[in-house]
Simulated assay, not measured.
Amino acid sequence: MLRARPLCELLPPNLGPISINRSYIDLEELDSRAFPEVKWGGHFSPHDCTAVHKVAIIVPFRDRKQHLPIFLNHMHRFLMKQKLEYGIFIIEQVRSDYFNRGKLLNVGFLESQNVSHWHCFIFHDIDLLPMDQRNIYSCPLEKHPRHHAAAVDRLHFKLPYTDLFGGVTAMTLEQFKKVNGFSNRYWGWGGEDDDMCYRLFKMGYRITRYNMSVARYIMLGHSKTRANPKRGQILSGVKGKMKKDGLSSVEYLVMKRNLHQLYTHIIADINEDLESLKLTYLAHMLFGDKLS
């Protein structure tokens, strides 16, 4: 008779500060050689104990191919040491001149549910790498969301303002649904994280953080994303829009869904003119070459 495996420790031993390799890595070589313990789709669970936390890592993505292998190489090493069961989901945006981080995170949340029932969701920018393994990627037991990336090197390891809730954040399934996810209205850099902060406060949550000596991150270099010129205007009108704007209203079309050894790659069209595109896509699925 097989014995049930013991539960993994909430804080495994021998965790601490770690070095970060920011050198270029070939993605194909990383996929084929590294991390044999990771199952296709970027899913890992400890072999010697049963993980207490089951975590989906949701990463919005566009035009950062040089960052992807660096991120995967660092994060798998980091997460496996924490004895978590986890999956990494890279959600890539197509079309549109402006990036919509909030909408992509909503897509990632919904699509990850088709893979497994995750207890906890880490919403993670691809250019941020944690520097300390004691920064446990779980959802807090005190039932409040957690802001992980509190101390970033580009910001001199200081928190710019108290209500910051961006970069790397953790929410439970219940919390994310209760606030109706992220707003879908922020096209371009900025605004969606402050909007989420408002949603959390509105629903009675507060933001928790690890000690600043633990919540430290390195930011990878990149060109600046185009800013959202209307973010201030949208933020000022957040009140009353929360129930109608978010998970309940997100529209998107999955163009491709690929499983790689180290991650699940979902390519999605999140533009606002999706109806005609959906009809064209459906026609091609039904009739294929007959349309040409």
Results as ranks from 00 to 15, higher is better:
D273L: 04
H74S: 07
E9P: 13
L259K: 14
R101Q: 14
L110R: 07
H47R: 12
H119K: 12
I122C: 10
T264C: 03
P13A: 03
E251S: 12
H74F: 02
C8H: 04
I270H: 06
M75I: 14
P145D: 13
Q133G: 11
Y24L: 09
G190Q: 01
M242P: 13
R226W: 09
V152D: 03
H124W: 14
P12S: 00
E272G: 05
L274C: 08
R216K: 10
H76F: 07
R33N: 14
V38E: 07
G16Q: 03
V38M: 05
M242V: 14
F121R: 02
N100S: 10
A151K: 00
R33T: 11
P140C: 09
R3F: 12
K177E: 11
L286S: 01
G221K: 07
R134C: 12
P17G: 05
G204D: 10
I88P: 11
A34C: 09
M203C: 15
P69A: 00
D127K: 01
F123Q: 08
C139S: 07
G108D: 07
P229Y: 00
G221T: 13
Q233M: 06
V152Y: 03
P12V: 05
I25S: 06
S223L: 08
G232C: 04
G232V: 04
I234T: 04
K83H: 14
E28Q: 14
N106T: 10
H148Y: 15
T172Y: 09
L68I: 09
T162H: 09
L110F: 05
F71A: 01
G87A: 06
I270L: 04
N180M: 02
D63L: 01
V250M: 05
K81A: 10
M255E: 15
F61E: 03
I136A: 03
Y252F: 15
W40T: 14
F182S: 00
K177N: 14
R226D: 03
I18E: 06
H53D: 15
R95G: 02
I20G: 03
S183E: 07
R5P: 10
M196S: 01
W187V: 09
L105P: 15
T169S: 09
K54Y: 11
L15W: 08
D245G: 01
L200D: 02
L286Q: 06
L128W: 09
A268V: 13
I266F: 06
N184V: 15
S19W: 08
M131F: 06
P46M: 06
V179I: 15
Y137W: 15
L282R: 08
L274A: 04
M80I: 13
L282Y: 10
S292F: 10
E192D: 07
F121G: 04
I57Y: 07
H144P: 12
T50W: 07
D153L: 06
D289I: 06
K178C: 07
R209V: 03
A227N: 08
R206V: 13
L291R: 00
H156Y: 15
T280D: 13
F44M: 05
E111R: 09
K177H: 13
P13V: 09
F287N: 03
A51H: 02
I70P: 05
P130N: 12
N211K: 00
Y24E: 14
W189F: 11
K278S: 08
L282Q: 12
